[in-house]
Amino acid sequence: MTDFFVSLGMQYGWAWFLATIAGVLLIALPLMLGVAMIIYADRKIWAAMALRKGPNVVGPFGLLQSFADGLKVFLQETIIPSAANKGLFLIAPIITFTVALLAWAVVPFGPGMVLADINIGLLYILAISSLGVYGVVIAGWASNSKYPFFSAMRAAAQMISYEVSIGFILICVILFANTNNLTEMIEAQRGFGLGFVNGFVFHLLLFPMWVLFLISGMAETARAPFDLTEAESELVAGYQTEYSSMSFALFWLGEYANVLLMCALNAILFFGGWLPPFDWEPLYLIPGIVWFLLKILFFFFIFSWVKATVPRFRYDQLMRLGWKIFLPMSLLFVVLVSGWLMLTRYS
């Protein structure tokens, strides 16, 4: 895009600056729109599985429901509890929302369609997603109320537990792709399975890692069945209990942006990102971004499906799954993967 602005007769520095700003807006605004629509889709899928109708009043098929909700919370009053720590109380939702948007900077939407094509892309995503916990923890503490505080402590323990195994899973993928750059990682998956299937998932050593990654992703984004941080049957609404209007909406948006990011990571790391499912020439006629968005939607459907069908985990079960099952298993697979690569690729 910098070249486009240079061709308009601008200096390189200004062209780069404008191109970056335009890139940020081109990612953030459609993402917000996407989040609004994905909330609608989530409610529809959930309703369909519960044999209900779901939102169907605002707009055709209820399509505008999320926008109506957005307008509603925008017009509401922001209530700050008198015992709350005011500054931190207001900063917390902003942190959640900002961090959720930041990670999208390195996500490649298509060939060359990436804002920052850095060579430590995956590490950047890991670093940014490890910041997500602060929004929840600060919100829980600053509310100065017991349910949000329980929720904050749960969030801190839960997110750290699952980040460890996610780290090991990412190491497996990095070893196979031999790079940290997300674009190169997608290119490495071209024709990976049997010479014509695009995607790391079609490998006996990486398929179990994908299953672990999907489940850890749900735990990391505190999505049902791991939504212990906002378990309404025990903690009212968890860390969001004291929040109202826009500050509440920012949590909501950030949460769904994180879920979408996890779906995108599933697609990029294991299912070939913007590559079509098969390495077959006619399929490449469809633009890469279409394949990528379709894969994101597919994984979001899985997330929704699980949310609608699986009951919530108990806290000790969550810890057991993370530390006693996922961690040893992902550690074992790091050894297996590196051994396999030493045998087949580097000997």
């Binding site: 910041l131 997110m159 750290i160 980040e163």
Partner: peptide, 15 residues
């Protein structure tokens, strides 16, 4: 830089 964020900000400081 990324290691600093992942290890210190993401794990140590949370604890």
């Amino acid at each position: 830089a990324m290691l600093l964020v992942i290890v210190y900000v993401g794990a140590v400081a949370v604890l």
